[in-house]
Design a protein around this nucleic acid. Sequence first.
DNA 1: TAATTCTACTTGTTATTACAAGTTAATTAT
DNA 2: ATAATTAACTTGTAATAACAAGTAGAATTA
Lengths: 236, 236
Amino acid sequence: MKPRIPQYKILYELIRKQIVDGVYKEGDILPSENDLCKVHSLTRPTVRHALDSLVNQGFIKKHQGKGSIVHKLPKGVGILSISGTTSALGSKNLRSEFIIKPKVQPWEDDFIFQLSELELSSGCIYMERIRFFNEAPIFYDVNYIPNINLPRFTSRNLENKSLFDVLRSVYQIEVKGGEQRIKAILATKTIASYLHLKEGAPVLHLERKFETNKPAFNLYSSIYCNTNEQSIYGLF
Amino acid sequence: MKPRIPQYKILYELIRKQIVDGVYKEGDILPSENDLCKVHSLTRPTVRHALDSLVNQGFIKKHQGKGSIVHKLPKGVGILSISGTTSALGSKNLRSEFIIKPKVQPWEDDFIFQLSELELSSGCIYMERIRFFNEAPIFYDVNYIPNINLPRFTSRNLENKSLFDVLRSVYQIEVKGGEQRIKAILATKTIASYLHLKEGAPVLHLERKFETNKPAFNLYSSIYCNTNEQSIYGLF
DNA sequence: TAATTCTACTTGTTATTACAAGTTAATTAT
DNA sequence: ATAATTAACTTGTAATAACAAGTAGAATTA
């Protein structure tokens, strides 16, 4: 009777999942707001709140008089999607491989972002991955997660799963926003070998900080992208 | 009595302007929702709608129990701000210089984005600029604007003004969203000379399409960034 | 004094109601 | 048949109400 998770969020998650899973495809029209009201026993403000969230996340576009049309890709936040790299390129053709499996270690001394005291004191879950798109290595990413209240996280199997989806579904940690720095660099020997490039090839470098719904709990990534074959694509 | 512009939008524009103009500064707390209701003779749903828009645009952040706190910068759309490059770096230290002043010409044959028939038939306002940050050339951007209903546009002085601000304030054209492709490339001789780089230096290349409130009216940019000295920074 | 409780705020969620405005297709009139 | 009108949808805007939940400071208590 006392849902800790609000109704609009439940509906948002449901429709979101249906879009991601392909129940609704690009260009499809969602059931009308009134239909959704009847089916889920909700009122229009609640349904509209859920749809507004979907619009904000870029899953649908609404047209007055017509309906809610499913968009091709989640609206990007920054370059890639807020759901992480997986949903930016579509999970079908993505495979990920650990260079360094998740392990707890202290934060680096000159970290790329300013850390809070809570984050500093609680240590860091560190991991390195390579992500393949159509069997070609596209992303080499280094991830830093504060070791705060994440039981059994390091032993969890993250292969081929979006880090963000796991945090979202298992730990109720949701990304609310963040900041990023982007630059073009020349591949070092290490990066070149991971991304199957020649040393000195142009590589995209992103440093990203993701703020979450948990105060003082942020995620950090340093991502190197091979953009020779394809560009990083994003909606906004 | 029949406001063509909805109340929530009027309030949104008002507060937005107050934030941009510095009436409310970073960290300031806006008047509470109930106060805004009283002052503007509106109800909470309407006021909340306006505040929701401000949250989405990144002007404020809301904290349950505390209030609405003014954010440092408008939430970025894509990498740079929705207001264009100017507000991404702050207009104080930015100076722009035309390589090719705005002129009407046909669209290029193999354009970077798919064009609508209306856009194709109406020709293209073309311009090339270099933008300096602290007297160093950072951006070299090529812009394409459909030549639809923009009286006296080519004769307008755009130096040191954001293209988006002019379109917004003079022509009521507002950017609603868009798409972008990003990659790292090596500077060609031309790009290197514009950005004061050596040929072969790493350069960020963005191809962006901006959708506006006018149907079938999109803006297009191809931007080359020198990210050797500083990164491109964005909030999201 | 220090810790606790309480109270008065803040935003968050949800239901109800009503009408406006844009879209589409069936119906009607020409 | 074609054009115009209408009707039946769709989403958009807005007021009203009530309670939940988080925050901060005042008041109380130990």
